[in-house]
């Protein structure tokens, strides 16, 4: 594995597990679902992988919507 190919050499599993840890961060969790999805997409994940990461992290819901104005 050449160091120059590092970005292409990241296995999909690693990418997804990283995305899961990323999604579990409270600050990330607070952000809208669309923002999280868009960011992961920019990071090279496919829609399928993003959905997978969301399911694995248990953060597939939009938390920011749950606490409405009282």
């Amino acid at each position: 594995t050449s160091p120059l190919d590092m970005e292409n050499a990241i296995p999909r599993e690693k990418l997804i597990s990283t995305a899961v840890k990323f999604l579990l961060n409270p600050r990330v969790h607070q952000s809208p679902l669309a923002t999280r999805k868009l960011f992961l997409k920019k990071k090279g994940l496919t829609d399928e992988e993003i959905e997978l990461a969301l399911q694995q992290s248990g953060t597939a819901t939009d938390e920011s919507q749950s606490s409405g104005p009282s």
């Binding site: 995305a19 990323f22 961060n25 600050r27 990330v28 960011f39 990071k43």
Partner: peptide
């Protein structure tokens, strides 16, 4: 927010 995006980037990169 740009700062949020930067935080996301750093967090993601630190996990890799």
């Amino acid at each position: 927010f740009a700062s949020q995006e930067k935080f996301f980037q750093e967090l993601f990169d630190s996990e890799l």
